[in-house]
Design a protein around this nucleic acid. Structure first.
Length: 575
RNA sequence: CGGGGCGUAGCGCAGCCUGGUAGCGCACCUGCCUUGGGCGCAGGGGGUCGGGCGUUCAAAUCGCCCCGCCCCGACCA
């Protein structure tokens, strides 16, 4: 294609609203334009790149026997009421009414729709297993859209759904997706991690996220460079670091002492001269309508999903200030477990074996020292904390890395939640009716592109992996007004096209600097520069990623790029 | 939803404090010139100053209300 015929509106300056690299570069390189918060138009370059990503996704989905379908984006409320999620999805769902005042919504995911489709069609065990997938626009009324294409209100997702007769079948479908996702992300040139995750509002037993470690991400993941253990921070298990100060020895009795105005862990640490890890933190939560006291080491944080899993109530809430006063007789900041009998006490395992710690006295402005779990109060032990910096891997003992990450894909074993609630049943071989067991698997298409840009860029612009770059190669005559250069560039361009390359000819009447800058910015992996060396029959091949320039005879240029491009498809991130 | 910031030409910004009818750089158009890293010269086009109401002889500028966008937090498959 000829640059002069294309619309590639590159920007010299970065628009002020863009903060993260991918957002800045996608705007500057003329890939996207914003319509509204979290809603973007995809211009020519973005569309080409997104299509390449979708092609890779389709190929790998077909390879595991998945069949492409296309479901509606506009859904009647009834279906969501049947599954119960009309109410539980809350504010994140776009809702609207039709002219007859019937409730509708825009699809944020498609478990309900696929299950309703299946229940009308699937009758017999002979029809299973099935894997159906689509690439669809999803709508989510995010509280805070942000960071360009990283958190959108309207976005593309490949979502697939598996239907099986039994757990073993689901395990197979899940594993196929796991393998397919690995191949997809490998081919897209992403350096990623597969991490154990919570299934959250999806329900279900097992789930795994595919994430790219990046400061632009909003998840936190913990992983071990030693044995490969990796999990979402909320789910991660870890060996707590040693307390900074050894506990006082002996069978000491709790001792009340005055701590006027010392409300936070940090306050008390400064006041007593003992670090947070020598204190116990008390949280009052309300689960299933009843108060629960949760004890954690002072420097640890509650993992809400772990607490929800222990209590079985995903809707738990912190107690209100007046409830805390009524139940414990003191304000948050002076709470503790000693003498508490009116609510169950849960303690994190990191407190097991600790002695003589500091905690609140349940009397404003007083704390207790020498409090020991199992002696001065009793509690049920659970893993309730978030893995913390310096925690060690429980498998191999190495210190865990904790990093921000971008969620690209997520696979879930759903179980029978949707088949049961929506009435999907098939007859088994023995004539009994069973609810098929389901899985659900998603990949954010725009996030693949954004993550690739986050991972692969430099001062001058994007450095896209060849597999997802909008063009493989750009042919740039340094001076297009020079008849010989222009003609040679044209023929090299044609040779590239003949090689099956997605080639771009920069035929603009611009100074070379402008053309070089633009080519760098939009991230084309290879550039063939036709310039002064043409008089010797030579052109230059510039590899965007390595910033390396090689002189080549005119005749070999196209063939060389074709060889590099096909070999470079699995290009991965530098470590 | 809470906190903060911003809204003036396509992009980046100044002007606002101290009211007097809008400016700079880049981009764009025309011509000349130039052609190895966002050239040079000359001429030119383009703005409801986010919106409404108010104060005033006079509002981009002051006041009130609203809208939008960004960032932090809350929230979130």
């Amino acid at each position: 294609m000829l640059w002069t015929k294309l619309f590639i509106p590159t920007l010299r300056q970065t628009p002020a609203e863009a903060e993260v690299a991918s957002h800045q570069l996608l705007l500057r390189a003329g890939y996207i334009r914003q319509l509204s918060a979290g809603i973007y138009s995809y211009l020519f370059l973005a569309q080409r790149s997104l299509r390449k990503i979708q092609t890779i996704v389709r190929e790998e989905m077909e390879a595991i026997g998945a069949q492409e379908i296309f479901l509606p984006a506009l859904h009647p409320a009834e279906i969501w009421r049947e599954s119960g999620r009309w109410d539980t999805m809350g504010e994140n769902m776009f809702r609207l009414k039709d002219r007859f005042q019937r409730d509708l919504c825009l699809g944020m995911t498609h478990e309900e729709i696929i299950t309703v489709l299946a229940r009308g069609e699937l009758r017999s065990y002979k029809q299973l297993p099935q894997i159906w997938y689509q690439i669809q626009t999803k709508f989510r009324d995010e509280a805070r859209p942000k960071s360009g294409l990283l958190r959108l209100r309207q976005f593309l997702m490949k979502d697939s759904y598996s239907f099986d007769l039994d757990q073993a079948g689901l395990d197979t479908a899940y594993d196929k997706h796991y393998q397919a996702y690995r191949r997809i992300l490998d081919r897209c040139g992403l350096d990623y991690l597969a991490v154990e995750a919570h299934s959250g509002a999806m329900g279900g037993s097992q789930s795994m996220e595919f994430v790219v470690v990046s400061e632009a991400g909003e998840d936190l993941v913990a992983f071990c460079k030693g044995c490969g253990y990796a999990a979402n921070l909320e789910k991660a298990i870890s060996q707590p670091s040693m307390p900074e100060v050894e506990d006082p020895a002996g069978d000491l009795e709790p001792e009340r002492f005055s701590t006027p105005g010392q409300k936070t862990i940090a306050d008390v640490a400064a006041f007593t001269g003992l670090p947070a890890s020598s204190q116990m933190k008390s949280l009052v939560l309300v689960a299933d309508g009843r108060p629960v006291l949760v004890m954690l080491r002072g420097d640890h944080q509650l993992s809400e999903p772990k607490f929800a899993a222990v209590t079985g109530d995903p809707e738990f809430r912190p107690a209100h200030a007046d409830e805390i006063r009524e139940w414990l007789g003191a304000e948050a900041g002076s709470l503790g477990p000693v003498g508490v009998t009116n609510m169950p006490i849960l303690a994190d395992r990191a407190l097991a074996g600790r002695r003589n710690m500091i905690t609140g006295a349940n009397e404003n402005d007083y704390h207790l020292r020498h409090v020991t779990l199992g002696e001065d109060f009793e509690a049920e032990l659970h893993d309730l904390r978030l893995a913390a910096v310096q925690d060690e891997c429980v498998h191999c003992g190495r210190v865990l890395e904790i990093r921000k990450a971008l969620e690209i894909g997520h696979i879930f074993k759903l179980g029978c939640k949707y088949s049961e609630s929506l009435g999907l049943r098939v007859l088994n071989a023995d004539g009994t009716e069973i609810a098929p067991i389901m899985g659900s698997y998603g990949i954010g298409i725009e996030r693949v592109l954004s993550a690739a840009v986050e991972l692969h860029h430099d001062q001058d612009g994007m450095v896209l992996p060849p597999s997802i770059a909008p063009f493989d190669v750009v042919v740039t005559p340094a001076n297009n007004a020079d008849e010989a250069q222009s003609r040679a560039a044209q023929s090299i361009y044609e040779a590239c096209v003949d090689q099956g390359l997605d080639a771009l000819l920069d035929d603009r009447d611009e100074r070379p600097g402008v053309k070089f800058k633009d080519a760098d910015l939009i991230g084309v992996p290879y550039r063939i520069t036709v310039g002064k060396k043409l008089t010797n029959g030579m052109v230059e091949l510039v590899e965007r990623r390595k910033r390396r320039t090689t002189d080549l005879p005119v005749k070999e240029a196209a063939l060389t790029v074709a060889g590099l491009a096909s070999g470079g498809e699995g290009l991965t991130a530098p470590a």
